[in-house]
Simulated assay, not measured.
Amino acid sequence: MSLTDKAITRIREMIRSGQLPPGAKLPPEAQLAAELGLSRNLMREAVKVLAVSRVLEIRRGDGTYVTSLAPRLLLEGLSSAVELLSGETLRELTETRRLLEPAATALAATRITDEGLAEVAAHLDAMRAAQHDPERLNAHDAAFHRAVVAATGNETLSTLLEGISASTLRARVWRGLVDGNAAEQAIAQHEAIFRALVAREAPLAQAAALLHVSSTEDWLREHVPTDGTGEV
């Protein structure tokens, strides 16, 4: 472990222990470096790294603060990272989505409010209206799933699935361009998910979501090269 990594670890330990809770202002650089037995240069580098990862926030002229440490903040770089994946790794990512999203949809069926159902219904209507516009269709497809997962009230789960689904959006757009039956099939699958949510039937919602995600996974398996050269 490098000296910078050790400095990062020490600051993280202070945060985990509650010595520096969310929103807390860090002591002045010289003071903190002395307390941890580190040089100011090492402390400065550690703070920069933790700021990039959104653990700390540097406010010019004010000081350095611990962020809210909310899942959406800490995991917001996930979608950018997974956008670089292709080929076999992209299929692995879709497999991960298959493991998570049906369970999330089942949970949503037990927690979704009338307002949440109305939002999901609005995106479903927009999908129907955009059958011949793959990009609009897929934008509302993504929004549909965001609304469903948001209904779970689990911010960590929502952030993880948002990051994973963002990487497959291009695949769904491409599928809409090359497969004339994709729009009709996608809408039918989303309608099944919506009916299960309205009925508050968790097992049915899970099964409908599994069928939908599995169809995307099957398409990727058929169309995306295993050598990672595909542009999907």
Rank of each mutant, 00 (worst) to 15 (best):
Y65I: 01
L100T: 02
D218K: 13
I8S: 04
E231C: 12
S215P: 14
L78C: 12
V47F: 03
D114N: 12
R175C: 06
L107D: 03
G77K: 04
T64L: 03
P203I: 03
P22C: 07
A121F: 09
H140V: 07
H145P: 07
A196W: 12
G37S: 04
A104L: 01
A192Q: 08
H212W: 13
E13Q: 14
V198N: 05
L3H: 15
R111N: 15
L161Q: 09
E231G: 07
N138T: 12
D133I: 05
G63S: 11
A34Y: 09
I15F: 04
P102Q: 08
R146L: 13
R172T: 10
H123M: 13
A46H: 03
A171N: 11
W174L: 15
E101F: 05
R60H: 14
N41H: 15
H140G: 13
L93Q: 08
V148K: 00
K6C: 03
E119L: 13
G77A: 05
R98Y: 02
D133T: 12
T156E: 02
L210M: 08
A103L: 12
P102S: 13
R54V: 00
A209T: 04
L137R: 11
R91S: 03
L75H: 01
P225Q: 08
W174E: 14
A199L: 00
L74N: 01
A126M: 01
H190W: 10
V66H: 12
A151T: 00
Y65G: 00
L124R: 04
E135G: 14
S158L: 10
E76Y: 12
D133A: 14
E201Y: 12
V66P: 14
R97S: 06
E135N: 14
E222P: 10
A81M: 03
N154K: 10
G116Q: 00
A139I: 10
A81T: 03
L42C: 11
L56R: 07
Q131E: 13
A208P: 10
E57K: 10
V47D: 00
G23M: 05
L210F: 12
A121M: 04
S39A: 06
E35P: 07
A143K: 05
E83F: 01
L50K: 00
T4G: 03
V198S: 02
S79L: 02
A192L: 09
V49K: 04
F194G: 00
R44L: 04
P134H: 08
A33R: 02
S215R: 13
